[in-house]
Design a protein around this nucleic acid. Structure first.
Lengths: 195, 195
DNA sequence: CCGTTGGCGATACGATCGTATCGTAAACAT
DNA sequence: ATGTTTACGATACGATCGTATCGCCAACGG
């Protein structure tokens, strides 16, 4: 046996190159040559780890939604507000991830593997939000008659739309957060004084 | 002079071919050859009307948001609900348009011309929604303390997010409309019995 | 009637695409 | 030491990319 190499690590570094290119030049700019250059390796090596380009693209979507957890506030049970804010593309990393997800959306409609990844990501976020909502209901800060799953869907859609608004520069960060807060205020339990 | 041809019409038919390809195979599949084949004309003719590919892509975004009006219900003053529903990708046309807009999003971040188009589209829809909201407030069906511009931003974001949810198949049409209705119900004037 | 002009097709160009096929160097088993 | 196996680089392949350059054909002005 020759020298051993961590395949997974290699693949991840290639996948990161793919995501970097997709984020700032679009999926159309993701070619084997560009990826090799971005990853600082030879074109042949990329082929060694991904026999076909489609394999590479599919793999690049594996860790797409893991970063959401990374953006979550560290506390034990983060507030609903902080959790939703963590979904917004507010820093460069989150912005890049949003752009990558956007670039892969059209592929998700044709590629079952990528579609499954998107669905899993949505389900995961949905469960997280629903649990957070239920927690705040028990805590008495959110109105108890709300359906956590229903409100989670609304919040995910709102966060996605506000994310696009941010990416396109239609509204700035302050405005978007104010919009989000006004929505959350309507979910508050009666007698709650905002925030 | 030789036979005269309607340049605008030619350009539009080419632009439609671009949008068709972008909608179902992504922007990466939009090449001069593919566009020519889709439009049923020669590759040289495409070049005749668009000296560079970027010109063609830019032009393809001109009429992107015009179709929204086409989806609006015919009545004099359509309800807020019907107006927002008209923003959702419920039929094939609207779905194709949403996919095209999605495909061009990454380009809008680099191309000022396309970015201006997106911004104009957002502004136009925002004004439409705000006016509709103000109208329903006067009519007494929406709570009078709401800010029409504020709620318009929220509804646009919600519609965009719900649109993505629909495109990706995370929720079906009925569920999405139910989500939308539950949001709208919270905006209703007190004493209003739903819808 | 003929020359000019614009619509349009055909083709050629170099670059880059994705993939295939090599050669070589390094590391372990025997 | 030798042979086998794997990491990796290099190169070649045909296809397609975007662009440039032709030539023909139709139509109108003179």
């Amino acid at each position: 046996m020759p020298r051993l190499v961590d395949h997974e690590q290699r693949r991840q570094s290639i996948a990161e190159a793919v995501r970097r290119i997709a984020a700032d030049r679009g999926l159309e700019a993701v070619s084997l040559g560009q990826v090799a250059a971005e990853a600082g390796i030879s074109k042949g090596l990329v082929q060694h780890y991904f026999p076909a380009k489609d394999d590479m693209l599919r793999y690049a979507t594996t860790t797409l939604r893991e970063r959401v957890h990374h953006h979550l506030p560290g506390g034990e049970s983060p507030s609903l507000r902080d959790t939703v804010i963590a979904l917004l593309p507010l820093d460069d990393d989150a912005r890049a991830e949003a752009l990558v997800a956007n670039a892969f959306l059209s592929r998700a409609l044709k590629d079952d593997t990528i579609a499954a990844r998107f669905r899993a990501g949505y389900t995961q976020l949905h469960e997280l939000l629903a649990a957070t909502i239920a927690g705040e209901q028990q805590q008495g800060t959110l109105a108890s008659e709300l359906s956590p799953r229903h409100e989670a869907d609304l919040l995910l859609a709102l966060a996605a739309g506000l994310g696009d608004t941010l990416l396109l520069g239609h509204r700035d960060t302050e405005e978007v957060i104010a919009l989000l807060d006004s929505h959350l205020a309507r979910l508050a339990a009666p007698g709650q004084t905002g925030r």
